[in-house]
Simulated scan of single mutants.
Amino acid sequence: MSDKKRGFPKFLKIVLLLMLVGGIVVGYLGYQAFLGSSVTKNEPYLYVHTGDSYADVLKQLEEKNIVTNVQFFDYVAKAMDYPSAVKPGKYKLTEGLSNRRLIGNLRGGYQEAVKFRFENIRLKENFAALLGKNFEADSVSFLNILQNNAVAESYGFTEANFFSMFIPNTYEIYWNTSPDKIVARFHDEYNTFWNTERKEKAAALNLTPQEVSVLASIVKGEALHRDEMPKIAGLYLNRLKRGILLQADPTVIFANNDFSIRRVLNKHLTIDNPYNTYRFKGLPPGPIMLPSIAAIDAVLNYAKHDYIYMCAKDDFSGYHNFAVTQAEHLVNARKFQRALDARNIKK
């Protein structure tokens, strides 16, 4: 029988079969490497720090078990020229995402912005710590800016009232944004917040926006309930207009730097500190906490009345009894003092 009639030699069939199987395997591996499910559910985000190399990224992927096969990732990354295009940022990790998609996001710098919200911040140190927790820069870097008089003056503030520039709200900022640019972003929000209407209301009170914020911080410190803020604001504005000491307990607590105080005593009132409004007339030099938007608007839209005294109610509801005369106030104060004694609250 001739060779033509015999067909392909057996060894050639085996070679062709092996090539076919090999092609299938290579195709499968290629598919898995590029398009197959790669990202695990172990981490919600991948943080690429400023200055990180490709080796740093690869190490993090391996140590945190972020992808199912680091070798596959490495192969695809090199094929897509990612090692020379590493960009810092906070990148969202979705379970099942392919290497091709993940690397495309990393290479393009398509990071997810941090939704940063803050309120009820008492001190600059607390704010710096929160910023350091949410962004790449550490808390020390942020605190250095918050306590920098030159920076404060560049924005039209003093070091004491600079804290009032930060309006509590929700901000979308990229994780690796530098501290100075983050502060600039807050300044933009401040300018937006203090629109013409708010500025005109502040001027009608003979107060600057910074002074409104300082007073609002005291109102925030006094009020446990938002609906009482305008009434409290009206009381302090009455005192300012009449040249009466504000005598606000939250400022005394701030001046003593002891936030465990529950009962302000005579010994607390003697401290020689410009934030002690029992000794120093007018507003303190800066806010005693970050005022909320509600507190600022409560000052700008204060309740008009004749009250100049207030004392916490003896039912500990968080509301206050208000008085026009000192005699009325002393009655309210004695009720509250008896309530404190009954609960054995001595300090």
Rank of each mutant, 00 (worst) to 15 (best):
K64N: 11
I66E: 09
I66R: 02
I66H: 05
V67M: 04
V67W: 11
T68V: 14
T68D: 14
N69S: 08
V70S: 05
F73R: 10
D74P: 01
D74M: 01
D74A: 03
Y75K: 07
Y75H: 06
Y75T: 07
V76H: 10
V76I: 06
A77G: 03
K78A: 02
A79Q: 00
M80V: 04
M80S: 06
M80A: 04
D81Q: 12
D81F: 09
D81W: 00
P83Q: 06
P83N: 02
P83W: 05
P83Y: 05
P83F: 04
S84Y: 04
S84G: 01
S84A: 13
A85N: 15
V86F: 11
K87M: 07
K87I: 12
K87N: 08
P88M: 01
K90I: 07
Y91A: 05
Y91I: 04
K92H: 15
K92M: 15
K92F: 15
K92I: 14
L93P: 13
L93C: 11
T94L: 02
T94A: 07
E95Q: 14
G96Q: 10
L97Q: 11
S98R: 11
S98P: 00
R100D: 10
R101V: 10
R101Y: 11
L102K: 14
I103E: 03
G104T: 10
G104K: 11
N105D: 15
L106K: 00
L106Y: 04
L106R: 02
R107F: 00
R107Q: 00
G108F: 00
G108W: 00
G109C: 00
G109K: 01
Y110E: 10
Q111C: 01
E112T: 07
A113R: 05
K115S: 13
K115Q: 13
F116Q: 09
F116C: 05
F116K: 04
R117A: 13
F118G: 05
F118A: 04
F118H: 03
E119I: 09
N120S: 08
I121P: 07
R122I: 14
R122L: 14
K124W: 05
E125P: 11
E125K: 15
E125L: 12
E125S: 15
E125T: 15
N126A: 10
N126H: 13
A128Y: 10
A128C: 12
A129N: 08
A129K: 14
L130Q: 14
L131N: 02
G132D: 04
K133D: 11
K133L: 08
N134F: 05
N134S: 12
F135N: 02
F135K: 02
E136V: 03
A137M: 02
A137F: 10
S139F: 09
V140Y: 14
S141Q: 09
